[in-house]
Simulated scan of single mutants.
Amino acid sequence: MTNSSRTTDDSVRLQSFRRIALITICAVYFLILVGASVRASGAGMGCPDWPTCFGSWIPPVGEAQLPDNYQEIYADRGYAETRFNPVKTWIEYLNRLTGVVIGLLILTTAWKSLALRDHDRWITIASVAALVMVIYQGWLGSRVVASNLQPGMITVHMLMALAIVGVLLFALARARRDTLAAQTVAAVNPRFQRWLYIVLVLTVLQVAMGTQVREMVDFLNHSQGEERSAWVSALPWFFYVHRTFSAVVLFANLWLVWMLYQSLGLGHSLTRLALGLLTVIVLAIISGATLGHLGMPAVVQPTHLLSASLIFGLQFLLWMDYRHARGV
């Protein structure tokens, strides 16, 4: 095989891999949104067992399909409050089906990456790692159910989803490294890289505080019931730090976008990526303010969690793309 034909084959394989990797990443973010919706709607225990749902692979549609003593059965398993709710059961069941689809997509991504192992072994390593991680995530999901939705377990489950996104983004960024290397970044402000690291640290701190707020909201949900309007006043001091710190994150990213705009203009892919990041940050702030000032409406919680997850992903991709544009 000649060098030109080998290059053409690599280009086709890279394009195919980038397509499936992007679809998989979008699907994982959709699963994060679905999972947040399950959590906000209180449907997390809609299926009190795993991997089946009320003992069946396809859940019942009515309580009449369950044994008369089903509550006693699940009470013996540690779920004293189990009560069949068809809406919550099917919301949780659809969440699980979405997870299965994600697993198949990541399996396909790993399979596609095998053809690129000679071109860039890190693409294959990252893709296979994502497959191993999603298998572990499936087991972790069973532990979440077994723990009766213990907040700490839910947080670990969420952080694992973000780790899977990070690994998939790493693989995608490696697959588009040649494209980025063709775009010059010589004119970028020398302070940009240092500021990018600062912004990444600020985001990690903000997400960590948001996780603590989320766990506190879960605690209030269990201790005070569905009186959402009372939750905000009961939240501890770190909620107010988290809310105020969002302004720091916003202005830090504004400066990041401004440096790219001044150096590269609007036409560069890094500038467009940074503008997309800024848009998501504004969405996160608006949804967070809505939660804080309108009594924690359940419909807004998934939007806030999704936007926070997207911020992490976009910043990580910006960092990787900048490194590849510099030939690193």
Rank of each mutant, 00 (worst) to 15 (best):
G35D: 01
L306H: 03
V134W: 02
M216V: 06
T89I: 07
G99Y: 08
S37V: 04
A230W: 05
V248A: 11
S223V: 10
A126K: 02
R19D: 10
P67H: 13
I123V: 12
A146L: 07
D178W: 08
L159H: 10
D321T: 05
A146Q: 07
M259F: 06
A274N: 01
F238A: 00
P190F: 09
F245C: 05
A40D: 05
V128P: 04
R177N: 05
D9G: 08
A274M: 02
G166Y: 04
A252V: 04
V165Q: 07
L283Y: 00
F30D: 03
V144P: 01
G62H: 15
G141M: 02
T89N: 07
H242Y: 09
V299Y: 09
N3G: 12
L318W: 03
L273S: 00
Q65C: 09
M1W: 05
W57L: 15
T89D: 08
L278F: 06
C47M: 09
V280K: 00
V34I: 14
G265W: 04
L200T: 13
T82E: 12
Y93W: 15
L256D: 02
A289W: 08
M133C: 14
T98N: 14
R39K: 05
R96K: 11
P86S: 11
S11F: 06
A247V: 13
I154A: 01
V101S: 13
V12C: 07
V232K: 07
R6H: 12
G78W: 04
A80P: 11
G292Y: 00
A298T: 06
M158S: 09
L256V: 02
V134Q: 04
P67V: 14
L149N: 00
H222R: 15
V280T: 02
S113Q: 11
L275E: 02
H268L: 00
L314S: 05
L172K: 08
G141S: 05
W319P: 02
S4A: 15
W57K: 11
T290G: 05
V100I: 15
T155M: 13
H268Q: 04
A64W: 13
L169C: 09
A252E: 04
L31K: 11
K112V: 10
G55H: 13
L305R: 03
M259T: 05
L205K: 07
